[in-house]
Amino acid sequence: MADIADFANDLVQEQLDQAVAARLALMPDSVLPSRMFCDECDEPIPEGRRLAQPGCTLCVGCKVTEDLRASRYAR
Protein backbone atom coordinates (compact mmCIF):
# COMPACT_ATOMS: atom_id res chain seq x y z
CA MET A 1 0.00 0.00 0.00
CA ALA A 2 1.41 3.35 -1.06
CA ASP A 3 1.71 6.07 1.52
CA ILE A 4 2.24 9.82 1.29
CA ALA A 5 6.04 9.46 1.13
CA ASP A 6 5.72 7.26 -1.96
CA PHE A 7 3.49 9.84 -3.63
CA ALA A 8 5.94 12.62 -2.72
CA ASN A 9 8.88 10.64 -4.14
CA ASP A 10 6.94 10.00 -7.35
CA LEU A 11 6.14 13.71 -7.67
CA VAL A 12 9.76 14.74 -7.11
CA GLN A 13 10.98 12.16 -9.64
CA GLU A 14 8.47 13.41 -12.21
CA GLN A 15 9.62 17.01 -11.70
CA LEU A 16 13.28 15.97 -12.04
CA ASP A 17 12.49 14.08 -15.25
CA GLN A 18 10.72 17.14 -16.66
CA ALA A 19 13.63 19.42 -15.72
CA VAL A 20 16.16 17.11 -17.38
CA ALA A 21 14.00 16.85 -20.50
CA ALA A 22 13.68 20.64 -20.66
CA ARG A 23 17.45 21.05 -20.28
CA LEU A 24 18.13 18.51 -23.02
CA ALA A 25 15.65 20.25 -25.31
CA LEU A 26 17.65 23.49 -24.98
CA MET A 27 20.89 21.86 -26.08
CA PRO A 28 21.75 22.34 -29.74
CA ASP A 29 21.68 19.24 -31.91
CA SER A 30 25.17 19.77 -33.26
CA VAL A 31 27.72 20.43 -30.54
CA LEU A 32 31.28 21.20 -31.50
CA PRO A 33 33.98 19.15 -29.79
CA SER A 34 35.46 20.57 -26.62
CA ARG A 35 38.83 22.30 -26.76
CA MET A 36 41.84 20.66 -25.15
CA PHE A 37 43.22 24.03 -24.00
CA CYS A 38 41.45 27.13 -22.69
CA ASP A 39 40.95 29.95 -25.21
CA GLU A 40 41.74 32.55 -22.56
CA CYS A 41 44.68 31.24 -20.53
CA ASP A 42 45.93 28.30 -22.64
CA GLU A 43 45.79 25.96 -19.64
CA PRO A 44 44.60 22.38 -20.29
CA ILE A 45 40.87 21.84 -19.82
CA PRO A 46 40.30 18.78 -17.58
CA GLU A 47 38.74 15.77 -19.27
CA GLY A 48 35.87 15.76 -16.75
CA ARG A 49 34.84 19.26 -17.81
CA ARG A 50 35.12 18.40 -21.50
CA LEU A 51 32.85 15.38 -20.98
CA ALA A 52 30.36 17.18 -18.74
CA GLN A 53 30.13 20.30 -20.93
CA PRO A 54 30.47 19.31 -24.61
CA GLY A 55 31.75 22.16 -26.75
CA CYS A 56 33.46 24.01 -23.90
CA THR A 57 36.22 26.41 -24.85
CA LEU A 58 37.18 27.79 -21.42
CA CYS A 59 38.62 26.21 -18.29
CA VAL A 60 36.54 26.39 -15.12
CA GLY A 61 38.38 29.43 -13.74
CA CYS A 62 38.02 31.45 -16.94
CA LYS A 63 34.36 30.44 -17.31
CA VAL A 64 33.60 31.59 -13.77
CA THR A 65 35.33 34.90 -14.48
CA GLU A 66 33.39 35.30 -17.73
CA ASP A 67 30.07 34.51 -16.02
CA LEU A 68 30.78 36.99 -13.21
CA ARG A 69 31.71 39.68 -15.71
CA ALA A 70 28.57 39.00 -17.77
CA SER A 71 26.31 39.07 -14.70
CA ARG A 72 27.86 42.33 -13.53
CA TYR A 73 27.08 44.13 -16.77
CA ALA A 74 23.74 42.43 -17.50
CA ARG A 75 20.66 44.56 -17.00
Rank of each mutant, 00 (worst) to 15 (best):
M1G: 14
M1T: 07
A2W: 04
D3M: 01
A5T: 07
A5Q: 09
D6S: 05
F7E: 04
A8E: 14
D10L: 07
V12S: 11
Q13Y: 06
L16T: 04
Q18K: 12
A19H: 05
A19T: 06
V20K: 08
A21M: 11
A21P: 05
A21K: 14
A21V: 05
A22V: 10
A22F: 14
A22G: 09
L24R: 15
L24S: 13
A25C: 04
A25W: 05
A25E: 08
L26A: 14
L26W: 07
L26E: 15
L26V: 05
M27H: 01
M27Q: 07
M27R: 11
D29S: 10
D29K: 13
S30D: 09
V31Q: 15
P33Y: 12
S34M: 10
R35N: 13
M36D: 13
F37P: 00
F37H: 12
F37I: 10
C38A: 13
C38N: 14
C38H: 14
D39G: 06
C41H: 02
E43F: 03
P44E: 15
P44A: 12
P46S: 01
P46I: 02
P46Y: 00
G48M: 10
G48R: 15
R49L: 06
R49S: 06
R50T: 00
R50D: 00
R50K: 01
L51I: 12
L51Q: 15
Q53T: 12
G55K: 13
T57H: 08
T57W: 06
L58I: 01
L58A: 00
C59E: 00
C59R: 00
C59Y: 02
V60A: 08
C62N: 08
C62E: 06
K63R: 07
K63Y: 02
V64C: 01
V64E: 04
V64G: 01
D67I: 05
L68D: 11
L68N: 15
L68Y: 08
R69T: 13
R69W: 11
R69P: 02
A70W: 09
A70L: 09
A70D: 14
S71P: 01
S71C: 07
S71Q: 14
R72I: 05
R72W: 09
R72M: 08
Y73F: 12
A74K: 15
R75C: 09
